[in-house]
């Protein structure tokens, strides 16, 4: 026995799924807030690069300076990450096109834009993987004498946890978009499933928005 589950007579005027996605995003934003709060605390407790005095405790662990992911290690430049950010923002734009084309009933076009969004996400993950593997080779945090490194060891924890957690979100987003793409291709997602596309879009834009924060805090500041 199946029953129709949808908005009741009194509702907020949106689809259940959209409300669910919004509430989920509140929760997800708070998870990132936890990681970002940890990052902020660990970074600004220790003196910044070139700011002089370090506290006694910090001195004893021999890691005072907060390294900069692109200048300290000198393998990859800010240009690459900036380009990556640009790619992700572009994939947000293509997602908007998917939505508007589905709304207009141009499913073939929507399919292409959706493919572009997927490729954008995969490209982002690829560059991030490149960045991780190259940083890991040079930054020495995984070696035995990590404690003797001249920079703050909290950096690696916060860098990997923030970018890794965000990368996992991008990966999920790519899967979400793949489902959407297959749905568009097989004709299962059409103009009537507009809300489904909108929900996928909400998630994807959220992931982009979080990246802007992560990029600003981890790379730019």
């Amino acid at each position: 026995m199946s029953i129709a589950i949808g908005p009741g007579e009194e509702s907020l005027g949106v689809d259940n799924g959209k409300l669910g996605m919004w509430t989920f995003l509140v929760m997800d934003a708070m998870t990132f807030a936890g990681f970002l709060a940890g990052y902020a605390r660990l970074r600004w407790k220790a003196p910044l690069d070139g700011m002089g005095q370090a506290s006694e405790l910090v001195n004893t662990v021999g890691s005072t300076v907060w390294p900069n992911p692109y200048t300290t290690f000198g393998v990859i430049g800010i240009q690459l990450t900036a380009f990556n950010t640009f790619i992700l923002i572009c994939s947000s734009v293509t997602m908007v096109h998917v939505l508007s084309d589905v709304a207009a009933g141009r499913i073939k076009r929507a399919e292409k834009w959706c493919l572009a969004t997927m490729i954008g996400g995969l490209f982002f993950l690829g560059i991030q993987g490149y960045e991780w593997t190259h940083l890991m080779q040079v930054w020495g945090f995984f070696s035995e004498n990590a404690a003797a490194l001249p920079y703050n060891q909290n950096f690696v924890a916060t860098f990997l946890s923030l970018t890794g957690f965000h990368g996992a979100h991008v990966a999920v987003g790519v899967m979400f978009n793949t489902i959407l793409y297959l749905g568009l291709r097989n004709g299962k997602v059409g103009k009537e499933q507009y809300t489904f596309v909108e929900i996928a879009g909400l998630y994807w834009h959220f992931v982009d928005l979080v990246w802007i924060l992560v990029f600003t805090f981890v790379y730019l500041l």
Binding site: T23, V26, M27, D28, M30, T31, F32, A33, G34, F35, A37, G38, L42, F141, F142, E144, A146, Q153, N154, V156, A157, T158, L160, S161, F165
Partner: peptide, 27 residues
């Protein structure tokens, strides 16, 4: 639940990372 629980999750994940990769993750 929606606003507070994920913060615990993030804290628990940080402790787990610190436990599982003791020489790398220092939160």
């Amino acid at each position: 639940v929606l606003v507070s629980t994920p913060v615990l999750t993030s804290a628990v994940l940080m402790v787990s990372l610190e436990r599982l990769f003791p020489a790398t993750f220092y939160f």
